[in-house]
């Protein structure tokens, strides 16, 4: 598990049925690209988050494959359709096998 990895997600608390909302996600992660060298000249091995997913009540919203060219502290903004009340689940998959998760509930009036 990489150190100091913390998600930060913005989801509106409420929406109308069928409304399209904007979701913003960030996670603090170094995203070591595998292009850098240390002071001895050795390549620092790649260690990034390679996949991000967002699901709502079991249905997929987005599934992003991430490469080393995504900046440190990966940020995504995208849109989701909200059919009913429920929970958004966000996952980030690390090269080292860890999976970081967070969830946000939303209420449909």
């Amino acid at each position: 598990m990489a150190q100091g990895v913390r998600p930060r997600v913005k989801v509106p608390r409420k929406a109308e049925a069928g409304e399209i909302i904007t979701i913003k996600t960030l996670i603090s992660h170094k995203m070591e690209s595998g292009q850098r060298k240390d002071s001895d000249g050795n390549v620092i091995p790649r260690s990034i988050i390679h996949r991000f997913t967002c699901d709502f009540n079991g249905q997929n919203v987005v599934d992003f494959k991430m490469e080393p060219a995504i900046s440190t502290n990966p940020y995504f903004e995208f849109e989701a359709t909200v059919p009913e009340s429920g929970e958004f689940k966000f996952t980030w998959h690390d090269d080292d096998g860890s999976v970081y998760e967070t969830a946000k509930k939303i209420e449909v009036a």
Partner: peptide
């Protein structure tokens, strides 16, 4: 390669923002 964005059935729009190197 930078990223491949895949949009599922509940994607509200087929667009995304991110930050790259």
């Amino acid at each position: 390669p930078v990223a491949t964005f895949r949009f599922g059935p509940l994607a509200g729009a087929h667009r995304a923002k991110t930050r790259i190197r």
